Amino acid sequence: MSDKFEEHRRLLFGTAYRMLGSVADAEDIVQDAWLAWHRTDRTAVENPRAYLVRTVTNLSLNRLRSAQVVREAYVGPWLPEPLLTSPDIAEEAELADTVSMAVLVVLETLTPTERAVFMLREVFGYSYSEIAEVVGKSEVGVRQSAHRAREHVRARRPRFTAKAAEQREIVEKFRQACLGGDLGEVLTVLAPDIVSWADGGGIVTAARRPLHGADHVARWWLGVLAKSQAREGAMRPAEINGEPGLLLVHNGATVGAMTFEAADGRITALRVTVNPEKLRGLRA
């Protein structure tokens, strides 16, 4: 039983990360779960995996409820923390989808309980009775929460998304156009109604409101890159949150991450995280 926690550590981190959208908080939750596990009479635990997922979910619920106040006072757009992932994850469509930046952003709009119910039901396949035990609600209440959450996510998640290979090609075109400093080339890669969000947290200079429209987004990004002293190495391809993205690099250090939504050969949404407190998940 002593090795059971380590056996499930990655699963537990993934559970907490999906719940919280924060690498730092997810790591804290896993550590708290480890402490709780070692205080438990493990000989009485019939299903360690289920027990640990339940523990992490409850700890995450408590953290999520307290985090809401902090996020309401956050400077500029709040984005989930980017996470470097293996290229292999893109082949597992369900797994990649549940950590994609677009879906994590949608999950942020659910209540903490709805988020927990959605994750336990849609990702882990828990029964309604099992979820009711975890979140402390009736089975009827859990079914209602699951339905609301499922409909909410379905209505707001991207309806048309490029496959990984296609998105990788689109992102590379965007990267080359930006590095070439050609406004016209950048515009050909952006959808006319693109929206761009930048999360600097008030620590790093970033647009504090979403940017709308291809021309606005293109000019803003070319202006940012024009200030880079190492333009050629300023944007490096990487798998971020299960999808092709770009790391922003300055003087050899990773200073941000760009994630994308793409459809019909163009980028429809662009999210950029440059808050240095949110870059822990970009370490190799």
Rank of each mutant, 00 (worst) to 15 (best):
G141H: 03
Y74C: 03
V135P: 00
T98G: 06
M119D: 07
G125M: 09
V135W: 00
V53D: 02
L64G: 01
D215V: 15
S60F: 00
I89G: 10
V69K: 13
A226E: 13
D199E: 05
A257C: 04
P87D: 08
S138D: 12
D97W: 14
T55V: 07
L59S: 06
E72I: 05
L79P: 10
L270S: 08
Y51W: 15
E94F: 12
G181C: 03
E133M: 07
H212A: 13
I131N: 00
V186C: 12
M119W: 06
A284S: 14
A218M: 02
A90H: 04
Q229L: 10
L11M: 11
T113Y: 00
P80K: 02
R175P: 02
G252M: 10
V56T: 07
G213K: 09
M258I: 14
A214W: 02
T98D: 11
E27K: 11
A191L: 07
A73S: 12
L35G: 11
S129H: 10
E46Y: 07
G76D: 03
V171H: 06
E151Y: 09
P210Q: 11
V123L: 05
D182S: 14
G242C: 04
A269T: 03
D3C: 12
A33E: 04
V135H: 01
A33W: 01
V142D: 00
V106W: 02
Q144I: 11
S196A: 15
D264C: 06
E133L: 08
D25N: 09
R175I: 09
L35A: 14
A257Q: 08
T188S: 15
L11G: 09
G184M: 13
A162M: 08
I131G: 01
S2Q: 13
M235D: 05
A269I: 03
V272K: 07
A191T: 03
A198H: 13
V106C: 08
I131C: 01
R115E: 00
S145E: 12
R159D: 10
D28Q: 15
V30T: 05
T85R: 02
L107N: 06
E239C: 09
L282V: 05
S138L: 08
R143I: 04
Q68T: 04
V204D: 07
G21P: 04
F160V: 15
S100H: 09
T113L: 00
T268Q: 02
R148C: 02
A36I: 02
S127L: 11
G125C: 05
E130Q: 14
